[in-house]
Write a protein that binds this DNA or RNA. Structure first.
Lengths: 175, 175
DNA sequence: TGCAACTGATTGCAAAATGCAATTGGTTTA
DNA sequence: TAAACCAATTGCATTTTGCAATCAGTTGCA
């Protein structure tokens, strides 16, 4: 399950890191969903990852230097997974990937609003988001108040769409 | 082998399109290598794809709308594969992926020079490259002379590295 | 103290994907 | 007419995946 090294081409090597069905999903949930624990990733993923696959990919991503693991002081069995700088710099790629998917694939509105906001925010927003992730995961200092984070902005956009769709679907008593 | 639709998330859907070991390699060889025929892709790929996998992925990429196939007028059995606009717009993602891989993974110098040049060229170079691909694959008009193409620039960079490494390795009779 | 719920995993097993070599039916070239 | 070339396809062994059940240890609560 380690790297193959079929060739030294950067695209090939990148593909060997996350060219599978689950690795990037896990990183997405950690980056955009703020998930740090095994259970959060297991139960929180809408795609429904199996626990053995999750365990395997977490191990693999650690071996590849994308994640680190630490004990959670609040619970002797709890582990906290952290993104490394290597994983944090994936943000622009995820932003592009989301933008591409939004154009060409049958995305759902509520799940693509984050991609839309991130695309509109452009590189400055990505940089801000990466700084927030460095603060959260690497303990770097941060100048952003907790209520003005990029993640909170994206989450608010998501919730606005969900709320609007709920009323639009006939749940609004005034309609 | 068609799309799963585990969720409507743009990143997930993108992953279902090329979240495997070979699809993006094939697209890379078509985009950067100018490969259009089955044999070119089969024998030209340094990673060594098997013919059944190649056939399967070409079929799948056609079903997904990333490629089209046409008869080659020069040979009744020859098929020409063309990129669609959907595939051409992958160029910025490939550029980012190459840049990321170049930083974090053990890339080889000769295979990463293209990624370096593409990164240095930035979005203007990517746009020019996409226009060239539209000309080649979609028959759009082009204002770029054949010797000043982005692909030719990248290829020249590659060959310069190969030549330098060959002399540096002791093949230079004057050394 | 006892027990259920929760922690990060591991195991067994069937199904699917992969990689390899050989082969297919047809076309072109020498 | 024979050899080389064309885009695949087939058979088969190996590997990976996905699912359900299970594991041993920890915590919170009655």
């Amino acid at each position: 399950m380690s790297i193959d090294r079929r060739s030294g081409c950067p695209i090939n090597l990148s593909l060997e890191v996350f060219g599978d069905r689950w690795s990037l999903i896990i990183l997405r949930d950690m980056i955009f969903g703020g998930k740090r624990h095994f259970r959060e990733l297991l139960n929180g993923s809408i795609e429904g990852i199996a626990s053995n696959i999750l365990a395997d990919r977490l191990k693999r991503l650690m071996e590849l230097g994308m994640l680190t693991k630490a004990d959670d002081p609040s619970h002797k069995q709890k582990a906290i997974y952290s993104l490394t700088e290597m994983a944090i710099t994936l943000v622009p790629i995820l932003a592009h990937l989301g933008a591409w998917g939004r154009i060409w694939l049958p995305v759902s509105e509520e799940l693509s609003i984050r991609a839309e906001l991130l695309e509109k925010g452009g590189p400055p927003m990505w940089e801000k988001f990466m700084d927030e992730l460095r603060h959260e995961h690497l303990g770097m200092p941060s100048g952003t108040p907790p209520d003005a984070t990029v993640r909170a902005t994206l989450q608010a956009g998501y919730e606005a769409v969900v709320a609007r769709k709920a009323t639009g679907a006939g749940c609004d008593p005034g309609a």
